[in-house]
Amino acid sequence: MIPLSWILAFSLALFFIGLFGAIARKNAISILMGIELMLNAVNINLLAFWRYLYSAHMNGLVFIAVVFAVAAAETAVGLALIISAYRNRRTITAGDFDSLKG
């Protein structure tokens, strides 16, 4: 069988690739994609811990369902924001949205 360590290493790698994408990419849609990757990594973790250590509890599985819902909500609102920003400013470069500059 697959050891837990493999799965955790895999999900960690996926998480940090997503994190890198969210930080480093210019395009605002890329930030959302990076966040999706991170959420997926979290889900893998939750499922793995449920399967390997806590298969009697439902907490992990419920959290996966919640993460699904949150991901859907986040994408819907995030993309709406991006499209609205694009309509107003004709750009989706995340670095151009800096009206909060100090």
Binding site: R25, K26, I29, M33, L79
Partner: peptide, 22 residues
């Protein structure tokens, strides 16, 4: 699919010739 739609709607905003990295 939603992301693909958003990409299509905002396609002409960034040209792929330039680097996509900050």
């Amino acid at each position: 699919i939603l992301i693909i739609f958003a990409v299509m709607l905002t396609q002409n905003s960034m040209s792929p010739e330039h680097s996509q990295m900050n």
